[in-house]
């Protein structure tokens, strides 16, 4: 045995011991919920958040033996759920699922949301949206420039899902010297319906358009997230177009503020385990419909929320 190999063995043995120690330590301190966990879903039954939450709940029940009871507290883009959640016990038996916007732009844009970003413990994100500006292929617009030409020639009806999209549209109008008739619709499905029916010419899609784009029925002209969308590589991002915002939302799990680190970490780890397991139904769901597992937790998540708030404030101030 050379000195080098001996050193390797020693190091790995030490690592092994440390690892076993850590595992034992974590096993001893393993947090367990006192009683059933209420999982409040900030959106209506059948939507993307609802499907994820219910799949996760049944999987957690199977794997962890926890009783997880999902219920829909839908309304005002997750705000109603947030208001209800903030005053519930912070022992990990009351958690909620909504989107990052519920604790960012939408909260700030509301005159009286009834909660602040500090009222919550942020547990983990689950997956993200592939936000795109999408049109029907039959319109004949292949690129953003084609669309701009049409927009300059006459008015176009532009469907968004929140005031944030109206703000981004305003920036686009300023930048390109055009005018849109912006229509706010309730949710991605409504946008898809309006596009299909010809009620609007272009709309924001948060991933719901993926299948239609892949089949050639619709085209993503622009990517709303920081990166280009993998299946629409020719669509520039908003940032490339000179609108410096990433408007992709993520799904997020939160609890009332002041949750113990134990509870927070155990819950985050449990969610992560279920979502990243390739065989789980929820993994298949978020992969088919969204960007696949996108798990941010702990300090990174706190920073993500803070940054989102800052960006939203900037966006609101420049469009005012």
């Amino acid at each position: 045995m050379t000195l080098k190999t001996a050193k390797k063995v020693l190091v790995s043995a030490a690592l092994g011991v440390a690892a076993v120690g850590l595992m034992a330590g974590s096993a001893a301190a393993e947090w367990k919920p006192k009683g059933p966990i209420s999982l409040m879903i900030g959106f209506a039954a059948g939507g993307g958040t609802d499907t994820q939450a219910r799949l996760i709940a049944s999987e957690l029940q199977k794997r962890k033996g926890w009783k997880v009871i999902p219920s829909n507290v839908a309304g005002r883009g997750g705000a109603l759920m947030a208001r209800k959640l903030k005053s519930l016990p912070n022992d990990g038996t009351a958690i909620g699922m909504a989107v990052t916007e519920s604790f960012g732009y939408n909260m700030l844009a509301s005159k009286n949301p009834g909660y602040t970003a500090d009222d919550f413990t942020y547990i983990t994100t689950t997956t993200g949206s592939q936000m795109g500006l999408v049109v029907k292929a039959s319109k004949g617009w292949k690129t953003w420039d084609d669309f701009l030409k049409a927009a300059r020639a006459g008015t176009v009806k532009f469907g968004g899902m929140s005031q944030k999209h109206a703000d981004v549209n305003y920036l686009l109008e300023q930048k390109y010297g055009v005018k849109f008739n912006t229509v706010i619709l309730r949710g991605g499905r409504a946008v898809m319906n309006a596009l299909n029916a010809g009620d609007i010419d272009i709309g924001y899609g948060a991933g719901i358009q993926a299948k239609a784009v892949k089949s050639g029925d619709m085209i993503n002209l622009v990517s709303g997230v920081g990166k280009r969308i993998p299946y629409s590589p020719n669509a520039p991002t908003l940032i490339e177009l000179g609108i410096p915002y990433d408007i992709g939302a993520k799904f997020i799990v939160v609890g009332p503020k002041g949750m113990s680190a134990d509870a927070r970490n155990t819950l985050a780890a449990a969610f992560a385990e279920v979502i990243s397991d390739k065989n789980s139904e929820v993994n298949k769901f978020v992969t088919a419909r969204y960007t696949g597992p996108d798990l941010i937790s702990g300090k990174a998540l706190d920073d993500f929320i803070k940054n989102g708030l800052k960006e939203s404030k900037t966006l609101m101030s420049v469009t005012n």
Partner: peptide, 14 residues
């Protein structure tokens, strides 16, 4: 953000 005509009650929030 304020649910109209709710007279401030949380229960009428939606």
């Amino acid at each position: 953000g304020y649910p109209r005509l709710s007279m401030g009650s949380e229960e009428l929030g939606n």
